[in-house]
Design a binder for these strands. Structure first.
Lengths: 333, 333
DNA sequence: GAAGTTATTGTAACCGATTACAATCAAAAA
DNA sequence: TTTTTGATTGTAATCGGTTACAATAACTTC
């Protein structure tokens, strides 16, 4: 292994000078610099980053935890994070929790052990106390998911109002019997999207009978199964709000499997606007989140946190938008 | 920051003893161990992993480079890699190249700078010489993609024979005028899948006229566009082999946009069997790669490489399988 | 009880960089 | 020419662990 000493020896200077050539070139004479650069070239020297990090007590690396890398929604947010990170000299490493809360928690050790300077979490399913406490000691930003009533810096959309918007869209189309397939109700996203649905129904004096609310798990299969439950009712809903696109796909599939059509027989609206929603048949009407912007904003916040800059605001709510495609239509019952 | 010294002081032992309690507990007396553990607890001590890594000159971390994290095919391989890695005490960090060859190459520096012990590359698009040279100095395994004629440890399927199989499936259904939408022909996967197609056609004495081969880019849009070209022919193919599923989706969409049906008017077969292929309409007939196994096998190979164990074989070819769904049917022209 | 073993702990060098501080050198000012 | 000043370079401490080796303690064996 060729180290800084070898370079110093070859160039006939001290290791301090070599170090300076690399990280503060203006402090060394042109001539010396050349000598050193030549030695570096000839030896094909690459500094050992660990040593630098140890000495500087910083890694210029941030960690992003995603609940499930398989979900393309998160990869887009990741792209946003990355773009800001690299342009500020930070490396991004990715921790995939594989939908396992424990693994999510384990990743926090990466910070505790000084292998990253900050963290962006696209999930917040572990115990609230743990995160809160952690964020006191380490730079942490939540994105997409969040914790109710917490002051941890957070970037997301307003899920309640987005869900309300989606539901009101169906109401505006004349639907009255509207079902919802929720996400898991032990995570905020699930809860808030249900809340938005309930609010919309209430505002328009539509009754939310218990059987109109089915709890899913954000998966295709759960969407399929819950829709099957709706269809088994003697008087099924004419429209359904699914709390994410995967479940919406499942719901549509279920409708079709019964020989019915979307949107003619049942309107379905989703949430997230993942890649596939436009390709799906029918193209899915859904709520689009500004994924890339969520990522960039989150990373900008994290940078401030790591620099110990003043943060004027902790919660950033970005604008979503409703993408009208072909999975919803007027109620003609 | 609480360091090993603080713990040593508090427990009234040397730092060496503390270190031993952590990494070689059997070498220290029960009583002392307890004292130290107590101090660790009380101070909430977490070892600085950088320091350990620097001293040991190993990171217990491997790097996985994916060409595009947005593609779910790769996330599945990643899961396989991960499962073997963590059960052997390795952390996995992910480098997303975002389809950019330069960034792919930059990630190699992570190894050169000693931030990871080994690397699995799910892409091999950079200059052959660079990879070859790199793999002499560092443990490297290729998975999915590969380099022709190279002896770098590689895990993949036999793309030529898989593509041949897919094409012969169409031939067996009575198709004679079969088109193919290839991947980019400057990457092996594109080339090999085309080769398989060509072989199949030749074996059955079917002529491959130039207009039957259209080069795509592995994207939905390119699949759509190339299919449009086919459909513009006075006598379009009755079946199409697309070199990956995304392009197959695009192709199907194009067929439908012309008011034609899949598979009745045109049969389409894909490659990869990504998540969405089963949901798509019609469910896509395609070649399924053993993604998880590719991942596990690759990681096992890498472990051997890092341990400098004997490697008996360098190329591992795993079995693919043809998944028959509903996008292909008998030629009834 | 002395000698020989083994178990346990401490001392200090080491991993490979960075950087405060000191030393040296060259150019400008007196 | 001497002094002052700023530019350039070197020396050595440091980051926080690990581990070879030495020292000491505890236990056997005769």
């Amino acid at each position: 292994m060729v180290s800084i000493k070898d370079v110093a020896q070859k160039a006939n200077v001290s290791t301090a000078t070599v170090s300076r050539v690399i990280s503060k070139p203006e402090a060394v004479k042109e001539e010396t610099s050349k000598k050193v650069l030549k030695a570096i070239q000839e030896l094909n020297y690459q500094p050992n980053v660990l040593a630098r990090q140890l000495r500087r007590l910083e890694t210029k690396t941030i960690l992003v935890i995603v609940p499930d890398i398989t979900n393309t929604f998160f990869s887009k947010v990741l792209r946003g994070i990355e773009s800001v990170a690299v342009s500020n000299g930070y490396k991004v490493i990715l921790g995939d929790a594989g939908n396992d809360v424990e693994r999510e928690e384990e990743y926090l050790n990466v910070l505790r052990q000084k292998q990253a300077d900050g963290i962006v979490m696209l999930t917040a399913r572990m115990e609230t106390g743990v995160i809160e406490k952690f964020s006191v000691d380490y730079p942490l930003v939540l994105a997409c998911e969040y914790i109710e009533g917490s002051t941890i810096p957070t970037v997301s959309i307003d899920n309640v109002s987005s869900a309300r918007k989606a539901t009101e869209y169906l109401i505006a189309l004349g639907h009255e019997k509207i079902g919802t397939i929720t996400g898991p109700l032990n995570v905020v996203l699930g809860k808030d999207r249900l809340k938005g649905y309930t609010q919309a129904m209430a505002r328009h004096n539509l009754s939310v009978e218990p059987f109109l609310v089915q709890e899913g798990t954000f998966t295709f299969d759960s969407g399929y199964n819950m829709m099957m439950k709706f269809l088994a009712l003697s008087n099924p809903p004419t429209a359904v709000f699914a709390a994410n696109d995967e479940m919406a796909f499942g719901a549509v599939k279920a409708v079709k499997s019964r020989g019915l059509r979307v949107p003619e027989d049942v309107s379905v609206i989703g949430f997230d606007d993942i890649e596939f929603s436009a390709i799906f048949e029918p193209p899915l009407t859904t709520i689009s989140q500004p994924t890339f912007e969520i990522g960039t904003k989150a990373m900008e916040l994290l940078l401030k946190l790591m620099n110990e800059d003043e943060i004027t605001r902790n919660q950033y709510i970005l604008e979503d938008s409703l993408i009208e495609r072909d999975s919803c239509t007027r109620n003609n019952a």
